[in-house]
Amino acid sequence: MTQKPFTLFFSAGESSGDQHAANMFLELKTHRPDIKGIGMGSAKMAQAGIDIRFDSSGIAVIGVVEVIKHYREIRRALTAMQQLLLAERPDLLVCVDYKEFNFKLARFAKQNGIKVLFYVSPQVWAWRPGRVKKYGAAIDMMAVIFPFEVPYYEAEKVPVRYVGHPSVDKAHPQHSKEEDLRLFGLAKATPIVGILPGSRKNEIERMLPVMLAAAQQLQTEFPGIHFLLPQADSIPDNLLADQLRAIPLTISVIKQKPYDAIQCCDAIMTTSGTASLEIALLGIPMVIAYRLSPLTYWLGRLLVKIPYIGLPNIILGKPAIKELIQHEANAERLAEEITKILKDKPYRESMRQDLHRVKQQLGEGGGSKNMALLALEMLGG
Rank of each mutant, 00 (worst) to 15 (best):
G13I: 10
H20V: 08
N23C: 05
I35K: 00
I38E: 08
G39R: 07
M40T: 04
K44Y: 09
D51V: 09
F54P: 00
I62M: 15
G63N: 07
G63E: 04
R72V: 15
M81T: 09
V94K: 06
C95I: 13
C95V: 15
V96W: 13
V96Y: 11
F108A: 11
F108Y: 14
G113C: 07
G113S: 09
V120L: 12
V124E: 01
V132N: 03
G136K: 10
G136E: 10
G136V: 09
A138H: 05
A138F: 09
I139F: 05
M141T: 12
M142N: 04
A143F: 09
I145K: 02
F146Q: 06
Y153A: 05
K157E: 12
V160T: 04
K177L: 09
E178A: 15
R182P: 00
T190A: 14
I195Q: 05
L208Q: 02
P209E: 07
A215D: 04
L218F: 07
E221T: 15
F222C: 04
H226I: 06
H226G: 03
D242A: 13
R245P: 00
T250Y: 01
A261V: 12
I262A: 04
C264P: 03
A267D: 08
M286W: 03
L295W: 11
L303E: 02
K305R: 14
P307V: 03
P307H: 03
L311A: 08
K318Q: 13
K318F: 00
A320W: 07
I321Y: 02
A335K: 01
E336H: 12
K343I: 08
R352Q: 15
R352F: 00
S368R: 01
K369G: 00
M378S: 05
G380Y: 06
